[in-house]
Write a protein that binds this DNA or RNA. Sequence first.
RNA 1: GUGGCUAUAGUUCAGUUGGUUAGAACGCCAGAUUGUGGCUCUGGAGGUCGUCGGUUCGAGUCCGAUUAGCCACCCCA
Length: 454
Amino acid sequence: MALQAPEGTKDLLPDESKFWTYFKATAAEVFGRFGYVPIETPLFEQTDLFVRGIGEATDVVSKEMFTAVSGQNLETLLGGGTIKAKSRLSLRPEGTAGVVRAVVQHDLVPQGAAPAKLMYAGPMFRAERPQRGRQRQFNQVGVECLGAEDPSVDAESIIMLMRFFEAIGIPVESMRLLVNSMGCDVCRPAYRDAVRSYMDAHADELCDECKRRAETNPLRAFDCKNSGCAAVMAHAPKITDHLCGDCRDHYGTVKQYLVGEGLSFEEDPKLVRGLDYYTRTVFEVQVTEGMGSQNAIGGGGRYDKLAEEVGGRPTPGFGFALGYERCVIALEAAGYEFPRAQRCDYFVACVDDSVRPEAFSLVQAARNAGLTVEMDHQHRSLKSQFKLADKLDADQVIVLGPDELAAGTVTVRNMATHEEYAIGLAAMKSLLSRFGNQPFDGDFSSMLKSASEE
RNA sequence: GUGGCUAUAGUUCAGUUGGUUAGAACGCCAGAUUGUGGCUCUGGAGGUCGUCGGUUCGAGUCCGAUUAGCCACCCCA
C-alpha cells in the first residue's frame, strides 16, 4: 500500500502553499505597522518549558504533546531508565512559551527597555483526534509583546488582530470578539474559591466531570457543554464581580480603548483560557458561519507571570495566536476565491521542433529580465500550446515558427484582445537585455509593442 | 483518549436482493483539413473498488481486523 501522510497532517499543495505564503506576508505587513518584528524559535523545546509555562494540569500539556526522544534515549526509556531533563523534548504545542524563553535567554527586554514586539508563523503540534478545524500539525501566526503592562498594549493587540482578519478577507459581520478578564494572583484565588464553594453547593446538579473540576480547576466548568452544568454555571459568581481594584481598572481601560476605536465586542465572563499562564485580559475571535465546533480563529491574552515562571525577571506580556487552517475554513465559508499558484506573463510557443533552440534561448532571456515565462516541454501541437498558455493565464503568447525564423521575427499575441503583431527577434532580445535579474515591475507588453512600431 | 459515520478513476459521486468485460460528470490527452486558446462536438487514456484476512461456486456488495478521512465529545488557534 502506498504510504500516506500521518493522521491529522495535511500537505499544503501548490495553490494553498502559495496562499500560506501570502497569509504570512499579510500578517507581517499589518503587524509590522504596529512595530512587530519576526522571530523564529525551534519547533521543539525541552518538555520542561511547556510543563512550567503552560501548566502541568492543562490538557495541552498533560495529554496532547508529542514528546520527542533522540536516538539511544529511547532505548534507555524502554529499558526503564531515566534521561536528563535536557534530553526530554517536546514538539511545541503553541508558540508563546518558546518566544518567552528566547526573550529571557537573550535578554531581549533589558530593564527599562522599550517592549519587545515579536511575531512568528509556523507549525504547532498537538496529539488530538483530528476533526474539522483541528489537525495534529497545524499552522499558527502569533505575536508577543513583552515588557509593558499598560492596557494600551492589550487594546492595540486586539485591534491589530481584527485589522489582520479584515485584511485577509474574513467578513467583519461573521466575526465575534469576546473579551474577559481573569484577574491576577491577587484576586483570582479568592474568586476560584468562590466558584468552588458555589459548585460544591450545587454538586448534585453537575456532571461527574464538573464535580472533578470543582477540585482541580473550577473555572473550566464554565466551558462545559452539558446543559445541566451550563444552567448551574450561568448563575455562578462572575469573575468581573471579583476583580481587585487594579484588575478592574485595567480591564475597564482596555474596554474604553476598544470602544474608542469603534470595535464591537462582547464581554463574556465565562471565557476561560485553558492555558495556565493567562492573567487579566483574555479574548477570543469566533466565526459564526461554517466552522463546525472549532469556531475560534484567534485568541490570546495577558501573561504577566510567565517570564518568571521560565526563570526570567518579572516581565509582563501580552500575546495572541491565530489558526491558519481555521482562517482558510472561514474564508471558504465566505466564498473567498483563492488565487491559482501557477501562472505566467508570457508563453513562448513553437510551431515545430526546428525553432526550439531559438525559443529556448528567448525564454531564458525573458526570465533573466525578470518576467515569468513558460514554454512547452512535451512537443505538443501549437493548438495544445495555446491551450496550455490559456490555462496558465498567460497575458501574451509569443509564436516562433519557420516563417518567423526566416524573417528574423516573432509573432506576439495578446490573449485578452486577440491582437497580434510581429517584432524583430533581435530587437526583442535587446529590449530584454536592458533589465536585470529581478521581478519586472513595468509594463513590458506596451514597451514591446512600441518597440515593434519603430 | 471515547463515540458515530465513511473509504469505488486525478476530483465529486452512482453501482439495484452478493452473479459475466465496474459506470457518470468534471478534469486530463487527442482530433474536428492546411501554424492559434477560452465555447461546442467526437474519440481516448486512467480504477488489482483503502489494505489484509474470512464466509461463499462466486464479494465493490456480507463479516472481522487494520489504516486513513469526516463528524461529535474533550480541548484549543
